[in-house]
Design a protein around this nucleic acid. Structure first.
Lengths: 386, 386
DNA sequence: CTGAAAGCGCTTACAG
DNA sequence: CTGAAAGCGCTTACAG
């Protein structure tokens, strides 16, 4: 009888045929396919094949296609097709046709929220005929500077920045040379660019109102260190204001490391046995960390409330479900692109000036078991800690 | 009384007037900063300021910098600095210096596994001086074709493709025109490009060995539909082989929708009350779906085993913790870039030919409560359903 | 060690 | 409606 021989990993890994294949790269059939074009077709080849000029071919692929006669259009289309021609966007960008590239700087690509925003931006950008270079800065200000320089090198037509540090100089330089800029979620100094993101004040209000409605009377606010990130600052500030005006007891935790946070959480819940207390997490990372700490301390969610900004796909899975405020990430991404293109349209008035959407977006409350409890009959009694 | 209002940040930021600001975009101070360069500096301006030729400036920013005298280098460096010069990579790419751009196609950017791979690729690419254009295809073959065309337009020097469909034609065309290509996780026809990813056979073996060791005697395999995705096929195939040779009872589920999967899961666990049974999930999506179904049916994890390929940050959070096989995503991303650059070095022998790492990577088992159970004393008895 | 010149693939006035 | 020509910012033989 096998009595839980846990953790015995038998990675026999011997010759599963799939060993490490070093050095010896298989030879690719590159030179072996003489029928393949050895390099991409160019404008001039299309022109020659179609029996016309470069100018006309260029027009065919630009906004002036209508000015070509039907027959010419047909010939060019035919030639381009048989050659598999794709305009070289780098060359186009060089001459003034615009690179049709947008750059995006993301502070932490492994954050699901960031990814959701990138996804929204990408959808919107592609819908407008732009491609997107995404650079992840891993919250490293130095790397951020390098990426910014690199994006400038690629002649991006616009920049969407979720700042890691405060790259005020480089951004100002870019704006000075006419590159439209929008910020996502975080401000950078007084740089005069639009910041698009969550309506942070509203989110905090919604969270606190919900907690109050559910009967919680004291709140521990859990956030990563707020310096440098304006969204965190806005949320924390509003929390402080609101908690005061609601007459709630409160405490603030700005370091989520287990060593620091677990004792704080423990002390907080212990101190508030006489009336229901809850934890409000400033973002997804905080929610993840605090959920772990709840588990570590075997604190039951619900009896001690837990609510967090940012919805994640596992929030419903952790019993009894974690209440969240979901950010409208697609809308935010869309607004960022719209705002960018709107700026672009000042320079290139041929594009219709799109209305930028709103800049501060309302979250939506997703109530779950972690904040929904039937308190014991006796009013004023502490939460059942089952 | 405010209980420990620690860390009171006085973020004055007073007008938190974060309402919906519609239409009315604030005017940017673009024209108001006459000291700013109205556009990016060019090679020729640097040359003029440094009192030298374009050629020398170009050399200064290329691999031939050493060939310039120390004084000339100093002068050029100085001039470039004061002008804030950044080489225009699009122009460089045009002439033959290489675009220094890599393209990456991702089937589903919202999948944490994909994001982790992108992150690894990005790290590695930047370390080698390349930038990365990431295009997400949302598993849409048509969109995939468009993105491929678009990447070609940007003259990427190499392509990393996590295929959504079977874009054999376009990829072959690209390879034909000399663009290095590596595939991630999924094959595309018999296209002759390296596939980099998990050692799927090994992963399945490790999962089954672990389950057997833990005393489970029958296994339900849960996967998204395997057509089109070679990794899914490889995993499924190995499961079938292995389960046969181990003499396990098994069942296969290839539709994870609640309507379809929940009854199957219910029937499976009901049919195997007499000996411990477990569910093996083919990837992170499957794990998420099946965890939901467990919850829906109130099946206790552990007594009914649950193990999945792909580690996710919440797996430890769902009690009693979900056992996973973590993919070494950074290594996979790194291998992809190395393989690409290795191909590139054939064409440009000045680069040292890097050794490609291995192509099939071993996962690592992360054992948790969902597969670790102390079975009841009586051997042969069913799992305790607490 | 340094530079004049040609050319990468495209766009855009300018002229028919 | 169509095309010849100049030029975008850079690199790279080729000559000194």
């Amino acid at each position: 009888m096998i009595f839980a021989a846990s953790t015995v990993l038998s990675l026999k890994r011997k010759t599963t045929t799939v060993g490490n294949i070093n050095g010896n790269v298989p030879i690719l059939p590159l030179g072996l396919l003489p029928t393949m074009p050895s390099s991409r077709a160019t404008l001039i080849e299309v022109a020659t094949l179609a029996g016309t000029s470069k100018t006309s071919v260029s027009r065919f692929f630009g906004p002036e296609r209508d000015k070509l006669s039907a027959t010419l259009q047909a010939r060019i289309g035919q030639a381009a097709h048989t050659l598999g021609y794709q305009p070289n966007l780098m060359a186009r960008g060089l001459k003034g046709g615009g690179s049709r590239l947008l750059g995006m700087l993301v502070a932490d690509i492994r954050n699901p929220f960031s990814v959701a925003i990138v996804h929204g931006v990408e959808l919107s950008a592609h819908a407008q005929g732009y491609s997107l270079i995404v650079c992840n800065t891993d919250n490293d200000p130095e790397l951020e500077q390098r990426h910014l320089a690199s994006l400038a090198s690629y002649q991006v037509e616009g920049l969407i920045v979720n700042a890691a540090g405060q790259p005020k100089q480089p951004l100002q330089a870019l704006m000075g040379s006419g590159v439209p800029l929008v910020l996502i979620d975080r401000e950078v100094g007084q740089i005069g660019a639009e910041v698009i993101g969550l309506d942070n004040a509203l989110a905090i209000e919604m969270a606190l109102d919900h907690l109050v409605q559910q009967g919680y009377r004291s709140v521990l606010y859990a956030s990563e260190p707020p310096e440098q990130a304006s969204a965190r600052q806005e949320r924390l500030l509003r929390f402080q204001q609101r908690v005061a005006s609601l007459g709630l007891q409160s405490e603030i935790l700005t370091c989520l490391d287990e060593r620091h946070a677990v004792p704080v959480l423990h002390a907080f819940t212990s101190a508030h046995r006489t009336s229901p207390c809850a934890v409000l997490c400033a973002n997804g990372n905080a929610t993840l960390a605090m959920a772990r700490h709840f588990q570590h301390l075997r604190i039951a969610m619900g009896p001690v409330g837990l609510i967090g900004i940012d919805e994640m796909d596992w929030c419903a899975l952790v019993p009894p479900g974690i209440t969240t405020l979901a950010q409208p990430t697609d809308a935010i991404g869309h607004a960022a692109v719209a705002c960018l293109l709107n700026q672009l349209s000042r320079t290139h008035p041929q594009h219709a000036p799109e209305l930028p959407g709103q800049y501060r977006h309302a979250p939506s409350l997703v109530p779950r078991g972690s904040t929904i409890v039937r308190w014991p009959q006796k009013p004023g009694a502490g939460p059942a800690l089952e």
